[in-house]
Design a protein around this nucleic acid. Sequence first.
DNA 1: TCTTTAGTTTAAATTTACCTTAAATCAGGA
DNA 2: TCCTGATTTAAGGTAAATTTAAACTAAAGA
Lengths: 233, 233
Amino acid sequence: MNILITEDEKDIRNLLTISLEEKGYTVFPAKNGRAAWEIIKAQEIHLAILDVMMPELDGFNLLRRIREISTLPVIFLTARTEDMDKILGLGLGADDYLAKPFSMNELIARVAAQLRRNHEYLNPKEPEALSLQYGDLRIDKAACSAYCKDRLLELHPKEYKLLAFLMENPERVFTKKQLYNAVWGDDYFYDDNTIMVHISHLRNKIEGDTQNPEYIKTIRGLGYKLHKIGGSR
Amino acid sequence: MNILITEDEKDIRNLLTISLEEKGYTVFPAKNGRAAWEIIKAQEIHLAILDVMMPELDGFNLLRRIREISTLPVIFLTARTEDMDKILGLGLGADDYLAKPFSMNELIARVAAQLRRNHEYLNPKEPEALSLQYGDLRIDKAACSAYCKDRLLELHPKEYKLLAFLMENPERVFTKKQLYNAVWGDDYFYDDNTIMVHISHLRNKIEGDTQNPEYIKTIRGLGYKLHKIGGSR
DNA sequence: TCTTTAGTTTAAATTTACCTTAAATCAGGA
DNA sequence: TCCTGATTTAAGGTAAATTTAAACTAAAGA
């Protein structure tokens, strides 16, 4: 992700550059509006951070030019409160602003949020279902609760996530590694035993006869799958 | 979401079709106004993209027909600037327009925006209730006071807001971050501990036995939810 | 049948998340 | 400015969730 920083004070500019680079962004620093404009024409910029007060072409006028050619998210930095009203009130098309002095964490959070928002805006996705059902099992995502035959299951968080994941992909066999990666969110580390223990706990809460599980089937040598009651294997 | 594309130039039509299908929309392409009209009568279309200049039935006249039977959002494509004024000026009921040549991102952004806008239009939120009740708890928004079993609770402002928010969404689980964002109004910064302290204070004022809360339930690893007395968990 | 491998279960150890209290800080009114 | 009450910070304590470890059981192959 390429971020343009336009800020005339050298110290702030460097601080911003270093902080954002640490987070893995590619940063293009500019010391005034004119330099920024050149960068925007030459590079594909995904987000711009602009100071309002700058020599050579101030933030407002730079934004106006940017908006003629792009809808990229723009975050303003300003020292004066009055500027803020202007930023929003004039409908210049700024996406967010931050008053100086600001905390670096705050800025980084807002940068991430704007990039995410813009990404979602350009890539609309179907809203996820709030309620899942498969056979006797049902999950209410809003309430974060799971039911079996309308009986509320008291699941621990990891158990709940594990069940939800299986219910989103019923009848599909997952290896223990895949389950770990999906539920724990860790792409590299995994532990078979941990999964097995959790599966065991889940079965205790769901299955009538844990010796012959009906819902969570073991596929020897492969992994587990969620099965709908009514057929065999 | 079903999108109708009406465009006589084959290359542009294909480009639009492919780009929108990539984003997960179902696309119905038509090469002239007459074909478009047949599709509209046969399918449930959620948004239409119309070229102004077309053989057989031009964009303006097609829109006029559409408006006789539907209020679906319509985006116009046009090569000539004069057309734009006409589109808006004549009050034909177009929702947006784009001048050729346009960027695909721009178009996709506008499609998403129109669909969202229309969705909000069709699903207006109901006016908020002035009095909320859930189980033994009651809130009088006009007086900003909360009651438990008709006993007035002496809540601090933040506590009141927190309770009110939970009462507006009972049984739904909120993370501490969500609660902070909703009650404090800050979209980026949040602090888990602050929420926990406030929940603790609230429980002191509402719950009989703070060790085993009945109203504000903790969902470990997730957050909190408001629960109606009468069941377990 | 014996051996090996894979899976299950249980209990203990560890870690993490949460609760509570008190002290510090902040904001608004006198 | 000081005072007051509301809110936040900080720290210590506690309980629940998760992981580890080990003993046990079932299945597949020789």
